[in-house]
Each structure stands twice: as C-alpha cells, then as structure tokens.
C-alpha cells in the first residue's frame, strides 16, 4: 500500500473509473472518465484491471508527494509530468521514490490527463462506482491535503515501471479532428441545409464546456419546425441542437434524458478525440458513418487495450 499526499490542485480534479451503470432510469448519469481510452491505458500501464479508479485532472494541474515508493503513469493529451528535476513522458509508467513530488500540469493540445497508480486508488463505491459526479453529490473533488490510498500492486515495481503504451497506433489526438457520428433519431426534423451545414462546416468548442456537455460554436443548424422534443433517453455523444442552432454534444455527466432534437450521435471510438479538443483552439468536423463500422472501430480500440495488457 502507498499513500499519495495531495499538495496542490487547480482545475477539476476527481476520481473516475469506467462509469456508474444501472441507475440511468433513475436519472443518474454514467459519469466516469471523459476520455475512456486514456483512463484504461493508464491502468494497463500500471498493471491494474482496466476499469480501476484513476485521478482525472481536467484543465488544471495537480501536485502530489509520494509517502512510499510507488509506480505511477500519466496518460492523456496536452499535459506535462515532472518531479521538478526532470520530466516524465506521458503514456509511460515510472517509478517514484518515497518523498518525491510529482506534478501533472496542463500545457496545450488536450484537456484531460489521467494519473494511475500501481494497485489502483482505494475509494468507497457509491451506487457501485468510484466515479465522482459532483452535481449529484456523488463523491467530492480532490483537494490539497487529501491523503490518497492505493491498493496492492499486481506485480513488483521493477516489472511495472518504464513501460510505454503505443498510443499513436490507436488514436491520433489532434485539435483538428474529423469526428465520426451516426445520424440521430430526429435527423429528419432538420432542414436539408441544416444537415449539410452540420456535416460540411467547421465547429469550435465554446469556452462554456464541462463534463456534462461540449457546446459548439459555428454556423447554426436550422430545424424544420421547432427544436423541442418530448424528453427521451440520451447517451454519451448525443448531439442536441437547441433553438439557437448551435450543437451541444452530451458528455459523461450529461442528464440521462433530454428534450432537444438530436441530429447525430458521436461514436464511442471518437469520444476521446472530441473530449481532448480545446476551447477556442480546435477545428472540429463531423462525418457520418454506420453503426456497424462504428462498432468495429470501437472493438479495435478495446482489442488494442487488452492486447497491450500482455505485451507490455
């Protein structure tokens, strides 16, 4: 067992696992990591089951002091990790000696980083998950002064450190992504021009974005009639278009139901790309695909993650 002391945090720093399932019909969102691929990769690097709890660092920085020796890994996009003397590469597990300070700090090229520790973080489950959902009062932010406990490492530290995950084989994080979507259940309630605008123009991520939703800015997408819909279930990646014509992509903390027309749904495999798009900086385009192709792409990413559990 290892303790990490939190020295300093800024931005949105919370525990997340792969999500809270089974309570959506009561209005509880899935939550979990904003970038599901990166969260799993961090766990694989540190020898943990892929769904284990990690620390999500969003739009800010976090500094820790190791109370005991440990192995950590930081994955994500747009972050730098250092011990104040040298930097550690992202996507590589590293050994940390008792007493060292480790800082994870946002630079540019992404929003979310994930810190995993060999043995996983020990957090009490709420409704079966360790994911923090602040708006619903499930869990709390990580604060300076907190002492974070890890479980027992699956292998010796010598076997777990200095392993690198070959991310670029699977996902190329970019600020100009082409995000694949499946046509939404109300796509026919948009005008022809609206559909064309959505697929042919470029969107920026608005500054008002969070774990609930990514508000996009660009050419408005007009509806045929009105934008309202009798509320129905939604999912991560659902693209709602309210009356102002500016699309909003539902993310992990989004409400389980919504009452705006859904023009499209971002495929699971491309949620990480969208999640790491920065406000103001990114140029987002959408491209239609089929359910079959989307599922193949998702399976390929999952296969990549699991193969590396044994290869690294």
């Amino acid at each position: 067992m290892t303790m990490l002391e939190v020295l300093d945090v800024s931005g949105l720093v919370t525990f997340q696992d792969s999500g809270r399932f089974g309570w959506q019909s009561f209005g509880v969102p899935i939550s979990g990591a904003m970038d599901w691929f990166v969260q799993r990769a961090a766990n694989i690097l540190t020898g943990n089951p892929a769904d284990s709890t990690v620390i999500e660092i969003g739009l800010g920085e976090a500094t820790f002091r190791a109370k005991q020796n440990c192995v950590l890994a930081v994955t994500g996009a747009g972050y730098e990790v250092s011990n104040y003397i040298w930097t550690f590469p992202l996507w590589t597990s590293f050994f940390v000696r008792a007493g060292w300070q480790v800082q994870v700090k946002k630079k540019s090229g992404g929003n979310w980083a994930y810190l995993a520790a060999a043995g996983g973080f020990e957090v009490d489950a709420i409704l079966g998950s360790r994911s923090t959902y602040l708006r619903g009062g499930l869990g709390d932010s990580i604060r300076a002064g907190d002492l974070l406990k890890t479980g027992k490492s699956s292998r010796g530290f010598d076997k777990l450190s200095a392993r690198t995950f070959p991310t670029e084989k699977y996902i190329n994080y970019t600020q100009a992504p082409i995000i694949e979507v499946i046509a939404g259940p109300q796509a026919e309630r948009f005008t022809k021009e609206g559909i064309q605008t959505f697929y042919e123009s470029e969107y920026r991520l608005s500054k008002s974005f969070d774990r609930m939703g990514y508000r996009l800015e660009g050419k408005p997408v007009p509806h045929n009639s009105n934008a309202e819909l009798i509320s129905e279930g939604m999912t991560i990646g659902s693209v709602q278009v309210p009356a102002n014509g500016q699309p909003i992509v539902m993310m992990v903390d989004a409400p389980t139901t919504g009452g705006y027309l859904k023009i499209a749904n971002v495929i699971r495999a491309d949620i990480p790309l969208l999640a790491q798009c920065e406000a103001g900086n990114s140029k987002i385009r959408f491209k239609e695909t089929t359910v079959e192709k989307a599922q193949e792409k998702y399976r390929a990413l999952m296969k990549g993650l699991y193969e590396n559990r044994f290869k690294l």
Partner: peptide, 22 residues
C-alpha cells in the same frame, strides 16, 4: 444489455457493442 431508460413515449436500450450487434 446494460440498462434501459423509459421516458414518456420512448424506451432507450443501452447495450454493449462488444457482446451484441445492433
């Protein structure tokens, strides 16, 4: 099948694409 969300006039069924096709 992961879970379902009943609403006013619709039912949304969440499934795991690793186990089931559309």
């Amino acid at each position: 099948i992961i879970e379902t969300i009943p609403a006013y006039c619709t039912l949304l069924i969440h499934y795991d694409p690793l186990q089931l096709t559309f």
